[in-house]
Amino acid sequence: MNLDDIDQLLDINAKEAAEKGDEGLLPGLIQLSADTYCRVSTLASGMACTKILDGIRYRGVKVSVARAFEDKVLNRSEAGERGEPFFDLEAKT
């Protein structure tokens, strides 16, 4: 998975949530393998930890990294507490 793939999935989730009027369908968590994170997380990517309590974020969505993870974007309902605190999806820069 690359940043374009992540952006596309985030935008699909946001569009679906808007169409159905369901905040639970908004992007809630980006789950990445350690290998993918190391490949896509550059200074220019915008993927960063700005506050230790909020964790790593990309476009306002929490990023969770582990060696055993499969790369995927979860909506808020799927992510549950793992994606909290939820922030508004930021525009792609």
Results as ranks from 00 to 15, higher is better:
30 I>T: 12
87 F>C: 07
31 Q>L: 15
42 T>P: 13
66 A>V: 02
81 E>M: 04
86 F>D: 05
34 A>N: 07
93 T>K: 09
60 G>Q: 12
22 D>S: 04
17 A>V: 11
82 R>V: 00
5 D>L: 02
48 A>V: 14
89 L>G: 08
78 E>R: 02
87 F>L: 12
15 K>Y: 03
90 E>Q: 11
4 D>T: 14
1 M>Q: 04
73 V>C: 11
18 A>E: 10
50 T>N: 15
87 F>S: 11
49 C>V: 04
29 L>S: 06
84 E>I: 00
25 L>A: 04
75 N>M: 05
34 A>W: 04
26 L>R: 13
31 Q>G: 03
51 K>L: 10
68 A>R: 10
5 D>R: 06
24 G>Y: 03
62 K>F: 07
83 G>A: 04
57 R>E: 08
74 L>H: 00
40 V>A: 12
63 V>Y: 06
25 L>I: 02
13 N>E: 14
89 L>A: 06
53 L>I: 11
2 N>L: 08
15 K>E: 13
47 M>N: 00
78 E>T: 01
24 G>E: 11
41 S>C: 14
37 Y>I: 10
92 K>V: 02
53 L>E: 13
8 Q>W: 10
89 L>M: 04
90 E>M: 05
1 M>T: 11
61 V>W: 05
70 E>Q: 11
90 E>P: 00
31 Q>W: 06
10 L>M: 03
88 D>T: 10
64 S>T: 03
13 N>A: 15
59 R>T: 15
29 L>K: 03
7 D>V: 05
8 Q>Y: 13
79 A>K: 01
49 C>D: 06
82 R>A: 09
